[in-house]
């Protein structure tokens, strides 16, 4: 039951892009088309899986004062190894399509964010589930953004023409268009949540502002 919860929460309730607001840089840069969004999503999910697993396994051996540098080293090593393996063994076509997203992942804050917020406090299996869920949520959010932007900018979807003769609308191809589309998504999401809370007679509280999820006070006494 709780395993399913870890898996599903990343997709909607704690979606990294739409709720946690993590990984904004790749979100804005790479969501110009559905294909790019899918590629970035798959690559990130793979790295997230590996890094979550690795960090949850070594979490007890690392002193909390140096945990962040240790996580960065682990993630960077992992990404570099994936890149070298892909260069060497992946089919040329796959390497060409996915390989360009790999350098963007090393500093992706979703990976570091999940390491710090989840994998460092939970077991290997739960962390794996969290990685899959967060990766899926990131991929889906990115693809929704990418699909809308690609359609608005050129009338295409996955590089296939959908509406012949759609005027080229460059704004949506550039990061400015990403800000606009993302803002609309966030507004819809928040509106939905506020309405739901009103119906239930409570006040909407964003999850990141909730004391139950924040460990800053509890972590003050270092190990």
């Amino acid at each position: 039951m709780s395993v399913m919860k870890e898996l599903v929460k990343g997709i909607w309730k704690e979606n990294p892009v739409l709720v946690l607001m993590l990984g904004m840089c790749p979100t804005l840069a790479v969501s110009s088309s559905a294909k790019n969004a899918l590629g970035m999503g798959i690559a990130t999910t793979c790295v997230l899986l590996g890094s979550n697993l690795a960090i949850s396994l070594v979490r007890k051996a690392i002193p909390s004062k140096v945990r962040i540098p240790c996580y960065i080293v682990i993630i960077a090593v992992f990404v570099t190894i994936v890149e070298m393996l892909m260069n060497a063994y992946a089919p040329a076509e796959l390497n060409k399509t996915l390989g360009i997203y790999i350098p963007l992942i090393v500093v992706n804050c979703i990976v570091l964010g999940r390491a710090e917020a989840f994998a460092s406090k939970n077991g290997a299996f739960a962390s794996l589930m969290d990685g899959i869920g967060m990766g899926l949520g990131f991929t889906l959010a990115l693809m929704a953004l990418g699909g809308v932007r690609e359609f608005l900018s050129g009338g295409t979807f996955f590089e296939y023409e959908v509406v012949p003769g759609w005027p080229s609308f460059l704004l949506f191809k550039f990061p400015a268009g990403a800000f606009i589309v993302l803002a609309v998504f966030l507004a819809i999401n928040n509106h939905h949540k506020i309405r739901k809370a009103e119906r239930e007679g409570t006040t909407y509280m964003p999850p990141e502002l909730n004391c139950a999820r924040c460990h800053i006070c509890a972590d003050k006494d270092d190990k």
């Binding site: 840069a29 790479v30 110009s32 360009i100 296939y160 023409e161 191809k173 990061p175």
Partner: peptide, 22 residues
Amino acid sequence: SHSETPGLGTQATDRKEKKSIW
């Protein structure tokens, strides 16, 4: 080979076929 940002920098580097669902 390159490592430019997909969707932005790749406009100057990548070739892609024109395809239509129709």
